[in-house]
Computed example of a mutant assay.
Amino acid sequence: MLDLVLKGGRVLDPGRGVDLSADVGFRDGKVAAVEPSIPKDAAREVVDAAGLVVTPGLIDLHTHVYWGGTSLGVDADAIALRGGITTFVDAGSAGAGNFHGFRRHVIERSNSRILCYLNISFAGIYGFSKNVMVGECSDIRLCDAREAVACGKEHADLIVGMKVRIGRLAGGTSGVAPLDIALEAADRLQLPCMTHLDYPPPGRFEVIPRLRPGDVLTHCYKPFPNDIRQGDGHVRADIKAARARGVVFDIGHGMGALDYEVARAMIAEGFLPDTISSDVHTLCVDGPAFDLLRTLSKFLCLGMTLEQVVTAATSAPAAAIGRPELGSLAVGAIGDATVLQERAGSFDYVDSLGRTMTGDRRLFCRGLVRSGIWTANEEQDLG
């Protein structure tokens, strides 16, 4: 007997090349069957997914969900359904000095799965609000590879990589040194490093060559001066070389990192993001980013296909964090799924510079399966 069947939906699992009308069955927290038709009496619960799209549970690779423990944290469970997210990857809200609190008070109590990049700063992101903005890497004394490695080993079940924020805002006069320290810690832990780069110094020329295969450059479609285009609008040679050696390019929309002009140029040139993430936090959860589904919808309207945006929020982030059991509806995979409705209409979308785009489509979440348990989106106004 199956615990749950999602019946009659379009099953879109692009990481495995699957796009077909099928039923998906779950048992004991895992995917148990993907078949053309599963009898209704073979399951304890049946959800009608006719006319809807069933994908692997969406993974938001860049979020900030240390709610109550950091000033930028939002409540993962409060936005999971509207964002279609079954796995949140927190991008460095906590450092070694406060990770225990993140684990005990947020992660262990959450209905949503939360995995983490550990901030190389011992204090994590501690000064982030409309009125207070203190970069956690501006005091290099807070960046210690020994503390990060010890924390990474102790919490290896949750920590998927190192995170470092560098640039004039996040790092002050520390330059590229926090990145070098983060890379040392990541190497010792044998994990990737996610790098945020705001305004120089340091600049792209110092940062990009340091990134290794599997490392993530987030905010990859951000505006000038760390735009990945040359002055003529084409992709820079060092960016192409980084992708060729396996650097992962992530969106990380947030409040300042999606420029429609850059996005249109890159998509036209075929330089698509590897992963699409929201970088949701307190200063962008009410716009311009909102959540993962709003971000994915923007990229649908910018010219990416549904298959491409689903890949960028399922199998691609799962690979980036080394968790192949996520982001897939293969039999035996963790039983996560997102049930989507793609609506036609007229929808206004704003980028990080305040530019408005009117799109003809938007994705809405009708419900989530988390470890085999169905939760419907009961919100009456899904707009």
Rank of each mutant, 00 (worst) to 15 (best):
E342L: 15
E45F: 08
E184M: 09
G252S: 13
L81D: 09
R323Y: 02
G354I: 13
G256N: 12
P14E: 01
G372M: 10
A177V: 15
A330W: 03
D198V: 06
A242L: 10
D13F: 02
L189E: 09
Q308V: 07
F249G: 03
G214P: 00
I79P: 04
S121D: 03
L300P: 10
S37Q: 11
N111K: 13
I239F: 15
I38Y: 13
L158I: 11
A22V: 05
L72Q: 14
D139T: 02
G84M: 08
R243T: 09
T87L: 01
C193G: 01
L302C: 05
S297N: 09
I181E: 08
A344K: 13
M266T: 14
S129R: 06
E269R: 09
L12S: 04
D250E: 14
V350L: 09
H219G: 07
V34G: 01
P317N: 07
G203K: 06
V5R: 08
I59K: 03
S129W: 06
V34A: 03
V18R: 05
A333S: 15
P39W: 02
M255A: 14
A148D: 00
V176A: 14
G97R: 03
T338Y: 11
C365P: 07
V235T: 15
V134E: 08
T195R: 06
V53I: 15
A376I: 05
F26V: 11
E325G: 13
A76V: 11
S71C: 01
L6F: 13
